[in-house]
Design a protein around this nucleic acid. Structure first.
Lengths: 234, 234
DNA sequence: TTTTCTATTTGACCTAAGTCAAAGGAGAAT
DNA sequence: ATTCTCCTTTGACTTAGGTCAAATAGAAAA
């Protein structure tokens, strides 16, 4: 593994080579295929992860079997690092469990596993890293509150429009002549992520298409009318 | 103002007297009456707050005027501290705005205002405080994800039952002979917080009452059947 | 290619919860 | 006490979006 891979992550971006080496020493690269589980919410907590390549979904299953995707973690981002700081005593005495399930949604998803104990020791005396972690948490919190607002305040059409636009912003596929995005998750997962079900999502895409806002072609979504789509999403 | 008031907050609980004095020097106590605004989401960001007494609600207003309460902040907890770490450059160049609205929901709500610049300088070299902040963020994040799960996965009955139980856990009014809670927010606000509207909330209380799970008397809710209520909330 | 399996779409139907309108109720102000 | 608000409840109605069942389309395997 290359130190540069670690340095590309947001959390460790500001570390110097010596510190990166330290992280490399305690961490371990793991590779998962599509829909393989990384951890279940029944497992004892042993450490957190950073996505190096691919995509990871964090999800919960409700009593009656409904799945809801809480986060989609892109490369460079960490996940399951929250429990580490939530209740350190429980972590150090191995009493904590993972608070949700995680699995890869793409083949050859590469993650870096960082075990609790050595990391906590390392981080406690590293202000720069602590600030990075705080900043990461702050950004995640922003995403979460936006997500809550969306689910609580917006109907499915607005949420779908919003998702397309946010993906477009991330992917920004060069040619703005023909703006389009490619879904990197199944429509099933997308439905779960925006808080609805596949049937409703399908009907919503149809409606957006009939209104000439987008053209859906499998996993490719062409944006026909960006302006209108933006207006609709608010 | 007493240093002890500051020390009672979760964020500053582990500071020594010297450090507390430092915080006192840079901060300022403010008092608000019920429904008075603390800040709007249109105001430039100038610092964060800690609730000393009373209750603060953080809320957003959607395009069409619907209000949704994102957080209810109890004494000891901080609010609006997230933007501080989200994008430090913007904060320091005064380009950021508050990301939501805040107002007091009780008379004589006392808050401590801590301005960005001096606090950032103070915190950057204080590991203990950084860890406290991370831990606070982690806990808030947990609350937020639970909130998302609730809204996405549970119906209104389950959410109301859940709220009653969580309040009961916080208030735990001595005599477990007759378990009951007292709502410290209006039913209007409660409806908004759990992601519904007053009419539906009212009907839900009625239903819970008809099923002999609770007895609602104004703002006092007696829990008649704790076991059943817990089962219902899952 | 043919089969098999899974993902997606469509149709018919239903229900939880929202909207609108109005009536009570409780506390504040006069 | 009486009026004025604001908060809460009730009733009648509507609808977004969920459920269930079946059809269709892709993708992977044989």
């Amino acid at each position: 593994m290359d130190l540069k891979d670690i340095a590309k992550s947001y959390m460790f971006a500001s570390l110097n080579d010596e510190e990166l080496l330290e992280i490399e020493k305690i961490s371990k690269v793991k590779i998962y295929n599509k829909s393989e589980s990384i951890f279940f919410d029944t497992e004892p907590y042993s450490g957190f992860y950073i996505v190096l390549k691919g995509l990871v979904k964090i999800f919960k299953i409700s009593k009656d079997g409904k799945e809801h995707i809480l986060h989609l973690i892109n490369p460079g981002n960490s996940f399951a690092e929250v429990p580490l700081f939530e209740n350190s005593e429980k972590i150090l005495s191995d009493e904590a469990k993972y608070p949700a399930n995680a699995s890869a949604t793409e083949d050859y998803t590469q993650v870096l596993f960082i075990p609790s104990r050595p990391f906590l020791e390392f981080v406690e005396s590293n202000n720069k890293l602590l600030l990075k972690i705080i900043s990461g948490f702050a950004k995640r919190m922003r995403t979460l509150t936006l997500h809550i607002e969306d689910i609580a305040l917006k109907d499915v059409v607005k949420r779908v429009a919003g998702y397309i636009l946010s993906e477009y912003k991330i992917q920004q596929s060069g040619s703005s002549v023909n703006p389009s995005i490619e879904l990197n998750i199944s429509k099933n997962d997308l439905a779960s992520y925006i808080g609805t079900i596949p049937e409703t999502l399908s009907r919503t895409f149809k409606k957006l298409q009939e209104d000439d806002l987008v053209v859906v072609n499998g996993s490719v979504i062409q944006i026909t009318d960006l302006k209108k789509l933006q207006k609709l999403s608010l």
